[in-house]
Structures are given as structure tokens and as C-alpha cells.
């Protein structure tokens, strides 16, 4: 009984939020230009189902393309940065500096270079999402227990041996953990870029709908974004659990 309530709880809460929202809109007679009621949003979603799907697809694949680039690049750079303390120290400030640039500011430059379309969106998704991967992988490598490293070095292990046997497996939970953050950021990057300059994608659809005062469609776009975001997060979280279950289990039993 209790378990059932627990598994149903997310759905119940989601439905409750929509119900409260609907009630507020009706009770206070809120104009649909300001805040459309959920019923209007769902109607709009059904009416514009085709365009919504088409644009969701564009946003999805640009996000994933940027994300995959970030994974490949982030993994390589993370291994490089985590390899030695000197590289770690030297590159860290540079990366912090790069990461603190709001990526919105970079979009116009990308548009200048590559024109309006999917490429700026992919690149924005990539630029915004590789950073957490690099930091996590590098941290995983850089925090090998010194005693364990002593054990291996006393056996005559080379730096490469230590990395292969301990560093890389040890960094994997950090890596897969960072994927959840990275996919969400990549999504933000792609949508931001679409909102500024694109011919397709949910960001583009919402700006268009907004300038036509089709607020229910704008909100339907938001809803589609939320669904996509949750889906991608759930998939990366699942991969994380599959690949590095030992990290969770070993923490659980650390006390006993």
C-alpha cells in the first residue's frame, strides 16, 4: 500500500499542479494571453501536434549531437587534465574562465561563423555541457587514495598502470554522474541558440508563437521541453545506475 503511494506520488503531484493551475485560471478569470489554463495548452498541443513533433525532433537531435561531442571531448580533456597535478593546476583557471562566459553571448559569434541553423545550436549545446564532464573526470583521477598509489608504485607500476587499473575505473562514477548535469545543460544550450537564431526547433517555434500572441502554443512548447528534458535525464540516470552500480552499493554498506 505504502509502496504504491510512493510510486504514484510523482504522477499525483504533477496532476495536482495542473488542477490547481486550471482552478486559479478559472477562478480569477486570467486572460489566456497572460497565463493560459492547462486545458487550453493541451488543446493547442493537439491542434499543433505536427509542428510540435517536428520541432521537438530538431531540438532533440541538436541537443544529442552537442551532448555526444561534449562526452567525447570532455572525456579526453578530463583524462588529460587529471593526468598530473601540474596540468590540473595550469588548466583549471582557464577552464573556469571559459565556463563563466554566459554561452548566450557566444551564439551571435557562432551565427556569424556558421550561419543561422542547426550548427550554432549543436555547438552551443556542446560548449555549455562539456565543462562538468571534464571537471568530474579530472577530479576522479586526481583524487586516487595516495596509499593505494603507493601500493602500486612500490610494485613498480608506471603512471599508465596506475591510471588504467585504478584511475579510470575510479573516475567512471564521476563521469556517469556528470552526464546527468551535462545533458540538461546541453538542452539549455540548444534551446537558447534556437531562440536567438534558428529556422527550426522548439525555441524557434516558441519565439514565433510568442510574436503571434499564441500563448497556449508557447506553453505547449514549454511542456514539450519539460517532457524531453525529463526523458533525457531519466535515460542518463539509468545508464549511470547500470554502469557504476558498485559505487552506490559500496557507499550504502560503508557504515556496516
Amino acid at each position: 500500500m505504502n509502496r504504491n503511494v510512493e510510486t504514484l506520488a510523482p504522477w499525483l503531484f504533477t496532476i495536482a499542479i495542473f488542477v490547481v493551475w486550471e482552478l486559479i485560471c478559472r477562478l480569477f478569470n486570467v486572460s489566456s494571453i497572460i497565463l493560459p489554463a492547462p486545458s487550453e495548452i493541451f488543446q493547442a498541443a493537439i491542434r499543433f501536434w505536427g509542428p510540435l513533433m517536428r520541432n521537438s525532433w530538431v531540438t532533440l537531435w541538436t541537443t544529442l549531437a552537442g551532448f555526444l561531442m561534449a562526452v567525447a571531448f570532455g572525456l579526453l580533456l578530463g583524462l588529460f587534465v587529471g593526468w598530473s597535478r601540474t596540468i590540473y593546476r595550469g588548466l583549471y583557471p582557464v577552464m573556469i574562465g571559459f565556463n563563466s562566459i554566459p554561452k548566450v553571448a557566444v551564439v551571435p559569434i557562432l551565427v556569424m561563423w556558421f550561419g543561422i541553423g542547426e550548427i550554432p545550436a549543436i555547438l552551443t549545446a556542446f560548449l555549455i555541457s562539456f565543462f562538468p564532464i571534464v571537471v568530474n573526470v579530472a577530479t576522479g583521477l586526481a583524487t586516487i587514495e595516495p596509499e593505494l598509489e603507493d601500493v602500486l608504485r612500490a610494485l613498480g607500476a608506471s603512471k599508465l598502470d596506475v591510471m588504467r587499473k585504478v584511475g579510470i575505473p575510479r573516475a567512471m562514477p564521476y563521469f556517469f554522474g556528470s552526464l546527468k548535469v551535462a545533458i540538461t545543460l546541453a538542452f539549455v544550450g540548444a534551446v537558447v541558440s534556437e531562440t536567438i537564431a534558428a529556422n527550426a526547433g522548439l525555441g524557434h517555434l516558441m519565439t514565433q508563437a510568442g510574436s503571434n500572441f499564441q500563448m497556449p502554443l508557447v506553453f505547449a512548447g514549454l511542456l514539450a521541453l519539460a517532457v524531453l528534458g525529463i526523458g533525457m535525464y531519466a535515460i542518463t540516470a539509468w545508464i549511470e545506475g547500470r554502469m557504476t552500480g558498485w559505487a552506490f552499493r559500496s557507499q550504502q554498506s560503508a557504515g556496516g
Partner: peptide
């Protein structure tokens, strides 16, 4: 290169089974 070492913490690798942990020095 001929010393075995053990510390206060067992420092076993959590992603390897006990026997795989034992064989780590043999891999090096």
C-alpha cells in the same frame, strides 16, 4: 618492485571482487 604493502585502510578496489583485488599485483 619487490615489496608488498598493507595499510590501515584496506584500500580494496570496490569495482573488483575480492579475488580480482588479490590478483592486482600480478597484473603489474
Amino acid at each position: 618492485k619487490l615489496a608488498g604493502m598493507a595499510f590501515q585502510n584496506s584500500n580494496l578496489l570496490p569495482w573488483r571482487t575480492v579475488i580480482e583485488n588479490l590478483m592486482l599485483p600480478l597484473e603489474i
